[in-house]
Amino acid sequence: MFQAKSRKIKTPYYLILPPQFLIWVVVIFPLIWAVYISFHDWNPTISPQRTFVGIGNYLAVLRDIRFLSALGRMLYYSGLGVTIQLVLGTVIALALVEYIRSPRIRTTVLVLFLLPMMMAEAVAAQMWTLLITDTGTINNILVWLGFSPVGWRAKELALTTIMIVDIWQWTALPLLIAYAARISIPEGLYESARLDGASKWLILRRITLPYMRVPLAIAFLLRFMDSYKFLDKVFIMTYGGPGTATELPTFYLYQTAFSYFKVGYGAAMSWIFGFIAIVAMFLFWRLAKSV
């Protein structure tokens, strides 16, 4: 009797053991291991010897100009890029609802906008790489229209080019979220506002945007998280170059740990980078709640 009871209680624990094991092996242990490594100087290609350096790695990362400028680039790329995606997505979603009355046409247009998002990141990056070469399709069109060709992958423009490609691919996500948020606003509120004599601008400001606030904040967060860990397009389109012009923290981190094999230094950098993410999310939620 007693045995049966205790077995019953234990069963759930047995059941979650396999995933528990996986999480420990794949997530928790590497995290702890990374903390341990980050206090050491270790290059496994030179020697298996790990030298304890205390917080030396951390101090070095914080003084590393290359890391700090990569952070600056990420701020530009994420801040501007995600904002544009969000604004553009919202505007398109509102325009779809406002100007396209036929549900069938509206769905068709929406699906067309969503197509880029359904493409694999690597495929999109490869496709755009071909389009933006100096003699690629885009420059050919520009020349045909009478403009001079643009050096899309030149030092000054490369990061912006990647940003544009990312906007092309990912505006669909905030668009989808904004569309869903907009059509869930009760139509009665709009009719009520029209009877109040409210202008379209006032309706947008007093009904539509306040209603869409939370879904839009979530869309921003999702895109910001994605851009934070952003790597694929840089890797394929420019490989961080020319020079370090498109080197984002993730790419520099990858280089440090897996190309230069400065593993301890890389671990310290990833902890700092992770900490910044936590602080950013925390600030973001505080902000989202207060608005």
Binding site: P186, G188, L189, E191, S192, R194, L195, D196, G197, A198, S199
Partner: peptide, 14 residues
């Protein structure tokens, strides 16, 4: 509706 100067109370109050 904006230009008619009419008011309406909806069934669900809106």
């Amino acid at each position: 509706a904006q230009k008619r100067d009419v008011a309406m109370v909806f069934q669900d109050f809106a």
